[in-house]
């Protein structure tokens, strides 16, 4: 199995809204394995979303278990049809993206979220997340809605104190 090619801007397909996953079968599991391989292949990527490899289904992987400084995390998470049901607080943090090479910027994200998602078997789970992991999930779910972090970048000088609510 090989890593899949990553779509990079200005590829319009990155703006496409992904479809709900309905079939939890072997082909889904095969794709998820390939997506995880691609994430690990991308330098330092803590998350990846299916549309980044041109697969327009609501599938994302987040893994914040390996960071420079340990952060609260739920390990390697395969998130199928993820949905944020609650968010709280906001914070500026620095983001980059496999689909936006050679650029990083500051983005405001919720600091605490509640999340509902299915796993590869189709079973539903609920998570409460904070900080870095919550940020990663918001970044990946944005991909499923055709939104990139560069659509949300703020200028420190002019936007920092403007209250922005996620979505």
């Amino acid at each position: 199995m090989e890593a899949l090619p990553i779509l990079t801007i200005p590829d319009d397909r990155l703006k496409q809204v992904s479809e709900t996953v309905t079939g939890f079968d072997d082909s889904l599991r095969r794709f998820v394995a390939q997506l995880e391989l691609t994430r690990q292949h991308g330098p330092g990527a803590v998350g990846i979303a299916a549309p980044q490899v041109g697969h327009f289904q609501r599938i994302a992987i987040v893994d914040c278990s390996v960071t420079r400084k340990p952060v609260p995390n739920h390990g390697n998470l395969v998130l199928i049809n993820p949905e944020i049901t609650h968010w709280d607080g906001y914070e500026v943090g620095r983001e980059g993206c496999l689909s936006v090479p050679d650029y990083t910027g500051n983005v405001i994200r919720a600091t605490h979220i509640k999340l509902k998602a299915q796993d590869v078997q189709g079973e539903e789970h609920e998570y409460e997340m904070e900080g870095y992991e919550a940020r990663a999930v918001q970044h990946e779910i944005d991909h499923l809605d055709g939104i990139l972090f560069i659509d949300r970048v703020v200028s420190r000088r002019t936007d920092l104190f403007k209250r922005k609510v996620y979505r």
Binding site: G47, R94, E95
Partner: peptide, 8 residues
């Protein structure tokens, strides 16, 4: 404060 860059 440290800036923990997130790549996703």
């Amino acid at each position: 404060s440290p800036v923990e860059m997130l790549v996703g």
